[in-house]
Each structure stands twice: as structure tokens, then as C-alpha cells.
Write a protein that binds this DNA or RNA. Sequence first.
DNA 1: ACGCAATACTTCGTGTTATGATGTATTCCG
DNA 2: CGGAATACATCATAACACGAAGTATTGCGT
Lengths: 105, 105
Amino acid sequence: MDIQLKRGLLDVCVLAAIKDGESYGYRIIKEMKPYLEMSESTLYTILKRLEGAGMLTVRTAEHDGRLRKYYNITNRGRARLAEFQEEWKEIMTVYRFVIREGNKQ
Amino acid sequence: MDIQLKRGLLDVCVLAAIKDGESYGYRIIKEMKPYLEMSESTLYTILKRLEGAGMLTVRTAEHDGRLRKYYNITNRGRARLAEFQEEWKEIMTVYRFVIREGNKQ
DNA sequence: ACGCAATACTTCGTGTTATGATGTATTCCG
DNA sequence: CGGAATACATCATAACACGAAGTATTGCGT
């Protein structure tokens, strides 16, 4: 998929991946893989960005002797998902403009 | 609209704006405005990028004593538009993942 | 006649961001 | 014993949208 097209979807995808209960980096990547592939460095960058924006919280816990960071969505994160659905209406308008059958000149 | 979401649409929008006959910068901006706003510096950057990619051609002509650059779409540009429609199917898959009603845990 | 908006295109610097490369460390399985 | 899987982190880089500023002409209102 075109890199540019991905960019606007990555953040909301990650939020969507944790909206039904906490998850962690490695699992998020695997869960999203069938829909949208992303490298690890990209995901951890996004998770930090979303944390900085107050859209998710982190807690560190031990699992099988290894440390894991569990991410939870916040109200602000849910608001972002709702906002995305509004933006999608605009996106569809643009899409229709792009694929419209032209009035050939 | 979210900047990131715009990014993947800008190029194809510009191609779509000239696909039914040549146009020029200022007119493209006005035509796209109801769907997607972009600054002039952004448009001219995109036009140069698309020209470099062989997706459009340029000719300069005088109009009312002023120089105008007219842009025409090429076969490669049309191919990009066709490719976009394929990519859109993937985008819709991602969209469904984002808005799916969750299996609450 | 004067000034301002509209038309039309250009250049430059900046901030955001996705990614590859690389590194660290543990567990599990054959 | 070794390699794959798990799990996260850092750094340098390149792409890109945009605001700011500039140049130059036409058209319109007063």
C-alpha cells in the first residue's frame, strides 16, 4: 500500500487495536498485520506519540520473567476514534471526486 | 481534516483534477477546494513531483499577457489512478478494522 | 488616479513522521 | 546448543505539507 495513504490510518489503527481491552506492542503488530503492516520501530514511535497526546496509558508488568508494556485507551483516545469517523465522511467525498467519471472535454 | 489522512489523497486528487482535460495550478486549487484544501506551495510541489514521475506533462502558454503552465495527464498518470482504486480496497479493509464493533473483553 | 483583491507561479525553511538498521535480553523448542 | 520467537529501544534519514515571503500582472471600486 502507498506509504502516504497509510499515514493517516496508522494512529487510529493502533487505537482501534486496544479499544476493547489492553494489549502490548508485539501483539498489536501481529493483530494488525492482516490489515496493515508496520515495522516495530514505527509502532513504538506511534505508541509514544499517542501516550504523549493522552490517548492511551501505559503500565509495565512482568510476564514470564520478561517486562511487557500494556497499553490502555483513554477517553481522549476514544474521542479520536469518533473524530476519525467524522473525518471519514470527508475522505469519502474526496474519494468520489477522484473516481468520478469525467465529463470528457 | 487530519494532515496525515490528506497525504495519500493529494497526489491522486491533482491527477483526477486534470484527467478530463488540461488545467493549470490556480484553477486546480479552486476546483479542489470544496473537497480538499491545499496551499499553493503544496500544489506546486506536487505538480513538480508528478511531472518528475512522468504522470503529467507541462506546457507554458501566454494568457492575457500572463504566463500559465498547463498540465496534461499521461498514461502513467492514468495508471496511477487505476492503481489507487486497487489500493482503496485495502483501505476499506483497514477502515472496517478500525470501526468494527468490538468484542468487549 | 489610487489601492486592493484576484490571478499565477516560485523559493526557502521547518516540523512531522515512517522506516531500516542496529542493539539488548529473555524464553522456547528441536 | 543454537536459532527462532518474544519484546522493546534508539538513531539517522528521507519524504513531504505548509507558512511565509516574494514577483508580477489584471481588474474593479471609489
